[in-house]
Design a protein around this nucleic acid. Structure first.
Lengths: 272, 272
DNA sequence: GCAATAGTGTCTCTTAGACAGTATGAG
DNA sequence: CTCATACTGTCTAAGAGACACTATTGC
């Protein structure tokens, strides 16, 4: 129990609480953790670090860290926004900012959920705001911050190696959110470069959902959803690795929601 | 700027941050705020309190308050879970616990999102975890905690009276989440008593979505979605207020997701 | 009786998904 | 050439939504 638990500090507001144990307002440490997903070699990968210090030293974990308060030279307090903290941790701890500067802003980042179960962090009361990031294929990251190593790991095998803190739960929630968002938003395109083919888009869906899709129906479906993709008029320079015609190129359309949605074939099994 | 901003406290972890301003780990105050929705007289209502003290004294606000740390008589620190804090604030600040004890556990409560923009609370760095609650029609609440008044307000008019803090934004996010969840989950049933009729269920959808639905098609659709509702074999004692046959009674089925989903008719307009 | 409502029948249009089939290009 | 692949055609079954219609109740 290292940090100040805030017992007795904070401005206590009057009235309304009951007899019984002494009560104080919780001052908590706030962290952000990022579930960053990408597609590498046709499989879904998540960015994991190996922790360089206690607690959970040597364990795999999601990139993340404490939200900060900056104190400028003139004494002005500058607080960090949660979204900014998530983006900073992702860039800093993985070297992505240095390695892939032109990709800044092309990484989709959204808040996932907040985890505050007492005891989730042995250092004391630490509440974590988790974020979900979708990134196009990126170069190998480089460790920074308190990470001793960092790498894209296939999500299929993550359960084999337990993660630090409650990060396995956060990752599971992030994966479910990602799988669900692919159904009714065009976010799959966030995994791709600005110009892409329909088969590449299908590969994203197959990797995230973990199942094969019917190529012909997927193709027609994608083109029939208004605003999903927009033709560039161009085609790839060469055919696929094993031959075939050159695929046409598309870019993102202006739709923010897909209607009708692309539903997962296996949905029926999760209904009850 | 009342509360301790945590500058300089907390266990600083080594390495990795850049030159420039002095940096410290943020110790924040943590609050929960609840967007509690119900259907009253066929219209969607949200539970609002009138704040009894500064800041925003006299303004309307969502029920909520600080997450607490309890210190038992033997000095043991007992931290409060976020979900528990949300439920406690909802019950305490509105008197619902005393008024409607048998309804505890019948109120659906889920985490909505976390709001931590610097400056959102004039008292300092206060981060709020917002929750969304669906409740069946409840008796009038009674003020408690730091609320000087509390009431169910129709959501249609909330924008006329600005809410404290960033609660208007939180309410808007909660409404959108609720509207969306009705499409693909059976949560509309959370607004109803254990036995209900299809027209009552339709009234929930109409109130939350704010649009009239086609009664005949809605009826057939609800009965055709596997596991949505389950017949009790009974019917209401009397017909509607203006006549008509007695409606059959149903209870919740075992589905956790609706497939196929019930889509909002007006969805097309929000797509781009 | 009249008006409102619960619930069913049925028709049309759209969509999902299966399958067949053609054209293209790497090796 | 062979074979995988991009893409199109077409058929079937299911669902969404519109409309007509019957049955039942309060007044």
């Amino acid at each position: 129990m290292g940090t100040t638990l805030g017992a007795g500090c904070g401005d206590v507001r009057g009235g309304g609480w009951r007899e019984g144990p002494q009560v104080s307002l919780a001052q908590v440490s706030l962290t952000v953790d990022v579930v960053a997903l990408t597609i590498r070699d046709g499989t879904l990968g998540v960015l994991l670090i190996r922790r360089g210090q206690a607690p959970f030293e040597g364990h795999l974990a999601l990139p993340g860290g404490f939200v900060r308060t900056f104190i400028d030279d003139d004494g002005q307090v500058r607080e960090e926004d949660l979204d900014a903290a998530a983006r900073r941790e992702l860039e800093e701890e993985t070297g992505l900012m240095a390695v892939a500067e032109p990709l800044r802003g092309r990484i989709h980042l959204e808040q996932l959920a907040t985890y505050g179960t007492p005891g989730r962090d042995p250092r004391g009361r630490v509440v974590s705001v988790a974020y979900l990031a979708f990134a196009p294929e990126l170069p190998e990251p480089r460790p920074g911050g308190d990470a001793s190593a960092v790498a894209w790991e296939p999500v299929s095998g993550f359960s084999a190696r337990p993660l630090a803190f409650d990060h396995a739960r956060i990752l599971a929630d992030g994966l479910e959110r990602a799988r669900s968002k692919l159904e009714y938003t065009p976010l799959a395109i966030s995994f791709l470069h600005p110009e892409f083919t329909v088969p590449e888009l299908r590969a994203v869906y197959e990797a995230v959902w973990g199942e094969r899709l019917h190529a012909a129906n997927f193709h027609r479906k994608v083109l029939s959803v208004p605003g999903f993709v927009e033709s560039t008029g161009e085609a790839t320079e060469r055919g696929g690795r094993r031959g075939g015609p050159r695929a046409r190129l598309y870019r993102a359309g202006d739709a923010r929601l897909l209607h009708p949605a692309l539903l997962r074939p296996s949905r029926e099994r999760e209904i009850r």
